[in-house]
């Protein structure tokens, strides 16, 4: 139903291109002039990992769309020099990036899309996980949860409940209802694996497990915290001498 005529007239105008568009739309005539400036689009990445003392270039911290003649120059533009003394998280605000781009390509328009800052995580030499440390925590969790489940069983008098169930089902008295207890114990572990959707490394289906969602949310909260607290520009005290 939409019926429109699109007429293009263009002529040189301070190296900018002007499009005159003429729409015919439901008996209303619309004239529109689009003066297309040359535009640089940037989209900051969320998180970037970088080794220390590295020069951070624009292409590392943002996706860039720009006219071909300036693209390579733009991408190689240095935004930040990481110093060794610096803490392991640096926030680059999009305002700083725009400032630097405007200084070199003042006549171009900069459009930003997406997040307003990039978190640079300085990764010092990846320390391997220390094996004794890891084993300590593994056994801490192992015996900790073993103790916890035993205390829980004792607390809820599971032994007497199980003996009662045994008597209800079979009509016999049994002080060692192992026929019930061993499947119960294995099922306990199976239930936890089912909940976390992990069978050692193999997944039961491809949806993320609640734990992975939880890890993601935790990381998001941490990121939000550093964005506000490590970014000098996002909090300011106006001094009232």
């Amino acid at each position: 139903m939409v019926f429109f005529i699109y007429i293009l007239v263009f002529f040189g105008f301070h190296e900018k291109v002007a499009y005159y568009s003429y729409y015919f739309y439901e008996e209303i005539f619309v004239w529109e002039v689009n003066v297309l400036e040359e535009t640089i689009y940037i989209r900051m990445r969320n998180r970037v990992q970088s080794p220390p003392e590295e020069k951070v270039l624009l292409k590392d911290i943002a996706q860039v769309i720009a006219p071909d003649e300036v693209l390579s120059h733009l991408q190689a533009m240095m935004i930040h020099q990481l110093l060794d003394a610096e803490q392991n998280i640096v926030i680059i605000d999009v305002m700083k990036v725009i400032h630097l781009i405007k200084r070199e390509f003042g006549e171009m328009e900069v459009q930003t899309i997406g997040p307003a800052q990039t978190i640079i995580e300085v990764t010092y030499k990846k320390k391997g996980v220390s094996i004794p440390y890891f084993l300590l925590i593994w056994f801490l969790l192992f015996f900790g949860s073993a103790m916890a489940i035993m205390n829980f069983h004792d607390d809820v008098s599971m032994k007497s409940v199980q003996e009662k169930i045994y008597t209800i089902i079979t009509g016999k008295k049994e002080t060692k209802p192992l026929l019930f207890q061993i499947p119960y114990s294995v099922g306990l572990g199976m239930g936890m694996i089912l909940f976390f959707n992990h069978f050692f490394k193999k997944r039961i289906n491809d949806e993320p497990s609640p734990l992975e969602v939880e890890m993601f949310n935790y990381q998001l909260d941490l990121d939000n915290y550093v964005i506000i607290h490590e970014n000098k520009e996002s909090m300011k005290k106006i001094s009232d001498d």
């Binding site: 015996f143 489940i149 035993m150 069983h153 192992l178 061993i182 294995v186 306990l188 572990g189 734990l211």
Partner: peptide, 21 residues
């Protein structure tokens, strides 16, 4: 994380069987 989960899972199974047996 899977390894840590397995620590807890195996701990639960071990604790439970140990208790009943």
């Amino acid at each position: 994380i899977a390894i840590l989960i397995m620590a807890i899972v195996l701990g639960k199974i071990f604790g439970s069987i140990f208790q009943w047996v």
